[in-house]
Write a protein that binds this DNA or RNA. Structure first.
Lengths: 335, 335
DNA sequence: GCCCTTCTTTGGACCGTTCCAGAACTTGCG
DNA sequence: CGCAAGTTCTGGAACGGTCCAAAGAAGGGC
């Protein structure tokens, strides 16, 4: 016979299926003797509840779907960690789906998750298809984590405070004595925020006219190319703040390639504190984006929203911190 | 009213729910006129089938569960990519769950997947809890991908040919003229295979007595420490084959720290061809573990096993290839 | 116009749970 | 001992689909 059902258990334990259900869900008013008989039968038959049947009648799945944009980006692992902890404690399971892998296939993951009737949805990072998220968010409590867009009605946003993080990085460099500081920017809302904050901070310190911005694309290659452009300028910057760690690694290659020693001749700061930045061979000074905290907060927000779907959408920012490592130092000829 | 059901669609289209079901599953014998009426109603109501209800009556979920050991390991992203493509083409959805994240929580993911009644299970990489996999594999068609263990009855194993990959790496170094070659080993079945093959290859080339093995632990830190030990030997090796890329990066740091230039003074080969090895600042020579191919084969094997659960378990090895990049060169004083 | 065959469509059972109303026991107490 | 008030337990109706046997409609041939 195939997989046992609750009826098989009931029969074996000599009780009704309802009682079995009560025992399994830990109801109080069950005589110990019967409870044990049921548990013994469960054990003997190797019974496992059928999640589909359960969710069909309970009308909830105790499952949240996490949409990732690209598993190759390492920074959200921390975030998932924070997410998972809190959700698990409230009896939720987490299912992951990677948009990047599935995009080519034309599969719409929000659709998959809606069909599964997940209780909630967390979009991690900037997604490829904001429109799909909009329709999904209309039916399922949704939170965006680790990104600042899309802004949708009824969708909370949890991220680190990019404005503040960029300020930390810039002021770190200024504090070391740098005056000619460049920024390699990235696209999207996050890129925009970090760039603006870099510019604002430079301005506040009276360094507006030595601030330079080159455009990158959040990849190593883009960082490399932007850095090559920066370093060939007549007035070469003594420090670079890169929009993320990957960009920073690209800049690092460009620097060494043109004979500059880091940090002696050029200081570099990344963003995200990914494990790439922690490789001792790179050892990038970077901004920690508080991923774990962002994850936890996103989970909390989602749970709140599941309880109360109509609460107004909020933006919740975690505080980033500077992680000073090996790629920053005072400029060689400090003023 | 809450989410529409198939009955709502039927009512709106003026047909029976059975007809709606036929249309949705693409049955041939439905008059075009009715088909369109149904589709229009679906559209108008924003109807989405309920996966739980469907799988309850269909008795299959069209879903396979993928167990990862640690999202932080980048090498299996390629594998997932190969996996996803094939599975999606056969109408399967892929759900990911990360064991590392959930381990601390004590959650047993195989259990979650059993309750979800996934049609199949793919264990990617070496898992933390082989025992749990054994019981799960007893009920669900299962394939192990990217690892060589656990060996379980009825569970296929798909991986790259580690023996061959290690041979490629070792022969690459020997071919460059190296005679004093060391290996930094890793634990587990994979580590064992690579080490054995390194030793065998050295022996075949009459280099058994200059072959050295230091134990690492697959992490950067372990690689660093093993390399420090290797480089402080009286007879310092001129080349190191590391069990994986992370270990190799650690060795790279140790080399540069002790004033050696790579590849001039020391050649290094990694394994896995992760994106870390592709960072232009590291640019490791490495062995490509054919992740995409492994993923595709694993998917195929799983589909076969779903069709025919009792077929004997097989081991299926994909062919790795050498990716020669910047960390290998002939030894300075070639013989 | 009638009967037979071939297409279409439909009602109802079933998948494995939960949940609720009420049945069947226990107790406590007058 | 009888009865009210708890406790425990149980049958049956959902939940939202699929699938099958059979009903109904549409043609075709005489």
């Amino acid at each position: 016979m195939s997989t046992p059902t609750i009826r098989d258990v009931a029969e074996r334990a000599g009780v009704s299926k309802s009682l079995v259900s009560l025992v399994l869900r830990g109801s109080a008013g069950v005589r110990p003797q019967k409870r044990e008989a049921v548990l013994a039968a469960v054990e003997a038959l190797g019974y496992r509840p059928n999640a589909a049947a359960r969710s069909l009648s309970e009308r909830r799945t105790h499952t949240v779907g996490v949409l990732l944009n690209d598993l190759r980006n390492p920074w959200f692992v921390e975030l998932l960690d924070g997410l998972n902890g809190l959700l698990y404690d409230s009896g939720m399971h987490v299912l992951l789906a990677d948009g990047h892998l599935n995009r080519r296939l034309g599969e719409d993951l929000t659709r998959t998750f809606t069909e599964l009737r997940v209780d909630g949805l967390i979009a991690v990072g900037t997604l490829q298809d904001p429109e799909a998220l909009r329709t999904a968010a209309g039916r399922i409590p949704t939170v965006v984590a680790g990104a600042r867009e899309p802004v949708l009605p009824g969708v909370d946003i949890v991220a680190n405070d990019d404005e503040r993080g960029a300020r930390l990085a810039t002021e770190h460099l200024i504090g070391l004595g740098h005056r000619h500081i460049a920024h390699i920017a990235g696209q999207g809302a996050v890129g925009e925020l970090r760039r603006r904050s870099f510019e604002a901070t430079m301005r506040e310190h009276g360094l507006a006219d030595t601030a330079v911005v080159e455009q990158g694309d959040l990849t190593e290659e883009g960082g490399y190319r932007a850095a090559v452009r920066l370093l060939s300028r007549p007035q070469r910057p003594t420090a670079v703040f890169a929009v993320n760690d990957m960009t920073c690694v690209g800049a690092l290659s460009a620097a060494e390639e043109s004979g500059l020693r880091v940090p002696r001749d050029l200081s570099l700061v990344g963003y995200d504190n990914t494990y790439v930045s922690r490789l001792r061979h790179l050892w990038l000074t970077t901004v920690d984006n508080a991923g774990h905290d962002v994850g936890r907060r996103a989970a909390q927000r989602l749970l709140d929203r599941i309880d109360e779907p109509d609460r107004p959408a909020e933006v919740d920012l975690a505080t980033p911190s500077l992680e000073a490592r090996g790629t920053t130092a005072p400029p060689r000829t400090a003023t």
